[in-house]
Computed example of a mutant assay.
Amino acid sequence: MYELSDIIEMKKPHACGTNRWAIIRIGADMKIKCQGCERVVMLSRHDFDRRFKKVLEKAN
């Protein structure tokens, strides 16, 4: 599904207009970083799973 450092797409775009996010922390809470404006957002795993759409790029 998703792993650390993957580039993902969420269901709704960020306020800056970009819909590309990098996963920077996985645990009970998920931390993602917007690839447009570099804003970091922390979500609970439940909220993340509801808003997650698909993986755009897998981490190497």
Rank of each mutant, 00 (worst) to 15 (best):
S44I: 09
D29M: 08
D47P: 02
F52I: 08
V55W: 11
A22C: 12
H14N: 08
F52L: 10
A59S: 13
R51K: 12
G17R: 09
V55G: 05
R51P: 01
E38H: 12
K33Y: 03
R45P: 00
F52C: 03
M1Q: 12
F52Q: 00
P13C: 02
C34M: 10
S44M: 11
V41Y: 14
L56R: 10
T18W: 08
K31W: 01
M1S: 15
K31I: 11
E9Q: 11
K31A: 15
G17A: 10
E38M: 12
E57G: 00
A28K: 07
N60C: 07
M1E: 14
A28W: 00
E3A: 09
C34S: 07
T18M: 12
C16K: 07
S44Y: 01
A28L: 10
D6V: 01
F52P: 02
A22W: 04
K33M: 13
R51M: 13
R50W: 07
C37A: 06
K11F: 03
H14M: 07
E38R: 13
C37F: 08
W21D: 00
G17S: 03
D49F: 00
R25T: 10
I8P: 01
V40I: 15
H14L: 04
G36H: 07
R39E: 15
T18D: 13
